[in-house]
Simulated scan of single mutants.
Amino acid sequence: METTSTQSGSVKFFTDTLKDYYELTKPGITLSVVASMLIGFIMGSAGSLNYVLMFHALLGTYLIAAGTSAHNMFMERGLDGLMHRTSSRPLPDSRISSQNGFIFSTVLIFAGLAYLLAMVNVVAGIVSLATTIIYLFAYTPLKRISALNVFVGAVPGALPVVGGWAAASGTVLEHGMWILFGIVFCWQVPHVVAIAWVCKKDYEHAGFKMLPKNDRKGIKAAIWVILPMLILFPTVYKLFVMDLVSWIYLSGSLLSTAAFLYYGLKFAIQRDISTAKGVMFSSFAYLPLIWIFIFLDWIIL
Rank of each mutant, 00 (worst) to 15 (best):
E2D: 11
S5R: 12
S5G: 09
Q7D: 14
S8I: 11
F13P: 00
T15Q: 03
D16L: 02
L18Y: 01
K19E: 00
D20A: 09
Y21M: 06
V33H: 12
M37Q: 09
I39P: 13
M43Y: 07
G44Y: 01
G47I: 08
N50D: 15
Y51M: 13
V52P: 05
M54C: 09
H56V: 01
A57G: 08
H71V: 00
N72P: 01
N72T: 06
F74A: 01
E76W: 07
G78H: 05
G78K: 08
D80M: 02
M83A: 06
S87I: 04
P90L: 05
P92V: 01
S94H: 15
G112H: 10
A114R: 04
Y115T: 02
L117G: 14
A118T: 12
M119Q: 13
I133T: 08
I133A: 09
T140M: 05
T140V: 00
L142D: 09
K143E: 07
A147E: 05
A147T: 09
L148M: 11
N149G: 07
N149Y: 00
G153K: 03
G153S: 06
P156M: 00
P156T: 01
G157K: 00
P160K: 00
V161R: 02
A166D: 12
A167C: 07
E174N: 15
E174I: 09
W178S: 02
L180S: 03
F181T: 08
I183L: 12
F185P: 06
W187R: 11
V192H: 11
A194P: 04
V198K: 11
D202K: 08
F208E: 13
F208P: 03
M210F: 07
L211P: 07
K217I: 13
G218W: 14
I219L: 12
I231C: 14
F233N: 05
T235E: 11
V236K: 12
D243H: 15
V245P: 01
S246H: 10
A258E: 04
L261F: 06
Y263A: 00
Y263F: 09
G264I: 04
K266A: 10
F267L: 03
F267T: 06
Q270G: 01
I273H: 12
T275V: 06
F281H: 14
S282W: 12
S283C: 08
P288H: 01
I290H: 02
W291H: 08
F293M: 14
D297S: 08
W298Q: 14
